[in-house]
């Protein structure tokens, strides 16, 4: 299930789009298990800035990753408006903190364009490609890159 692009006969994907600040992104909907509102997380010591902490998801301990920080965008203070997408990545359940979830999109492979060079290198490392929809530009995110395999131990 780590390959979140299920191949269908018509090579169409179903994606869920979300917003961080002014930018829009989307991920394969198959990896997203549920959407919930923000609850305060218990912080973990000496973890990277994008690790907001852990929350209780029906008895399981779920780490929360602030995608805005992860992508190197402006850090935002979590308010009640913020949304957690519970995703299954690499055998783990992870909560992705975003500003809002917008809609569900159908996309065909050929509509994806390569990421232009103008995008900063940092964000580029997470983006599989971009595409246009109703005049908006959405970046397709590679979920596997969000959670690194082994984090370097803090100093």
């Amino acid at each position: 299930m780590t390959d979140h692009f299920s191949t269908t006969a018509s090579d169409a994907r179903e994606l869920i789009a979300f917003r961080i600040g002014e930018q829009e992104f989307c991920v394969d909907i198959m990896a997203v298990r549920e959407i919930r509102g923000w609850t305060p997380a218990t912080p973990l010591p000496r973890t990277p800035g994008y690790m907001k902490g852990v929350i209780n998801l029906r008895g399981a301990v779920l780490p929360i990753i602030d995608l805005g920080v992860r992508f190197g965008l402006t850090t935002s203070e979590p308010t009640a408006r913020h949304v957690i997408m519970v995703a299954h990545i690499g055998g783990r359940m992870v909560g992705l903190l975003v500003d809002a979830v917008s809609d569900i999109i159908q996309l065909k492979d050929e509509e994806i364009q390569p990421t232009p060079d103008v995008a900063s290198d940092h964000v580029k490392s997470f983006v599989k490609g971009i595409f246009a929809l109703d005049g908006r530009m959405l970046s397709l995110i590679e979920l596997d890159r969000i959670v690194p395999e082994i984090e370097a131990e803090a100093a």
Partner: peptide
């Protein structure tokens, strides 16, 4: 005891986590 490694990884100084009576996670 709830393990951190299940969904995240080991964190230095933290053995594991638990869920307290108020529903919040405590390290």
């Amino acid at each position: 005891i709830k393990s951190l490694e299940t969904n995240y990884q080991q964190v230095e100084g933290v053995a594991a986590a638990t869920i307290l009576g108020d529903g919040r996670v405590a390290l």
